Amino acid sequence: MYLSPKVAVVIPSYKVKNHILSVIEAIGQEVSKIYVIDDCCPDGTGDFVENNCNDERLVVIRHIENQGVGGAVMTGYQAAIEEDVDIIIKVDGDGQMNPRLIPSLISPIIDGRADYTKGNRFFDLEEIRAMPNLRLFGNAALSFMTKLSSGYWNLFDPTNGFTAIHRNVAKSLPFNKISHRYFFETDMLFRLNTLRAVVVDVPMSAKYGDEISNLKISKIIGEFSIKHTRNFAKRIFYNYYLRDMSLASIELPLGLSFLLFGLTFGTYQWINSANTGLPSSAGTVMLSALPVIIGLQLTLAFLGYDINSVPNNPLQNLKNHSNTKMDNGVQNAK
């Protein structure tokens, strides 16, 4: 007999008092628990929700200190895991996301096709026009950096906070290491890749009304660049040198070495030629150009391998299969 999965929604709440009741009201009956995490909100969102919402599914959890959106979501994840929830959804409380899209968001997880799903506001080109230009440009830049650092080349809209995760995968996350602030969504993708979890984009719409975004692209671009570089280096080390070795493990260092040598030697010769007024010999030009060409070819070969290495075997299926075998073993022993 098929049993419907137990689904919970986590709503990190900080200065969303004007929208959160309508968000909760729009959550359908497919959800059995709603966790509102009052992240030390100065507006008292937790008290406001408890006093004005009679939904029996509601659970309010309060933080004594502000921990950021990531910290609030981790608190919600842990509460849901303790209550044996099968699928945990994260919805922002500012009203930009439509909770009625939850069935579409969790469908790939229920079908066993994904471990983690996220919304993508870039599927419909007509609806992209409704997105503010700054957000559009910022998301495009962040998406490229996220592809490099996370290894999920098939994803877009990395800062989208409309997500769902299977319990088996959530339990494997290093909660104490995941970024608690605005880097949370993109850091989650990096952590999921280290687990080799399957992540799927789900088309969605977003509305932009009177809500005020606390995320300023100009303020976080430097911080994000540093963290993306760090995650990229970690991912390459984990996947290509610690966990496994392949031809790509040789292509990357060789390619970068050839590129660095060719560019450095070529720049030095160009400066020397400019100072002396003497043209460089054909051999000197080739000695500069050939390493650059070879290095570029090897680096592109590595990127091609990396792009084709996106996880495609859902982790939840492997864990469910392992648990089934264990249960069968226990039954046979009895």
Rank of each mutant, 00 (worst) to 15 (best):
G151K: 01
V36Y: 03
S281K: 12
V59N: 14
F122M: 07
K177S: 14
G68N: 05
L315K: 12
K207C: 09
F122C: 07
L101M: 13
L105T: 07
S13E: 03
D43V: 03
D115L: 05
P158E: 03
I89F: 10
T163R: 15
D210N: 15
Y305D: 05
L287D: 08
I11N: 07
I178T: 06
Y241I: 02
I37Q: 07
F224L: 10
I34Y: 11
V36L: 14
D43L: 11
S246W: 02
V310M: 00
P311Q: 06
A72L: 10
T117K: 06
A197S: 15
I106Y: 02
Q331N: 12
K15M: 13
H180W: 01
I271M: 03
I128D: 01
D244S: 14
I88W: 08
I128P: 05
M1W: 04
A197V: 03
K334E: 11
I64E: 15
A333K: 14
E83V: 02
E185C: 06
G68A: 04
D201E: 08
N328D: 13
A282W: 14
N239D: 10
L101F: 10
V310C: 09
T163F: 02
G222E: 02
I293K: 04
I37K: 11
I221Y: 13
N18E: 15
K177P: 01
E50F: 03
W270N: 01
V16M: 07
A170F: 13
G329D: 02
C40Q: 13
N239C: 07
L303F: 15
G161M: 09
D38M: 08
K147W: 02
S22K: 15
F175N: 10
I307L: 04
C41Q: 04
R113S: 11
G70H: 05
T45K: 05
N52I: 03
S281E: 10
E127M: 12
K234P: 00
I37S: 01
N54W: 12
P311H: 04
N98A: 07
M145G: 02
I307H: 00
N168L: 13
T75V: 08
Y77G: 00
G262I: 07
S280M: 14
F258S: 10
E126I: 07
K216A: 08
N231M: 14
S13K: 08
E65I: 07
T229P: 00
T146W: 01
D86T: 05
I220A: 00
G295Q: 06
S322F: 13
I236H: 00
N139H: 10
D43Y: 09
D244P: 00
I11Y: 02
P253F: 02
L259C: 11
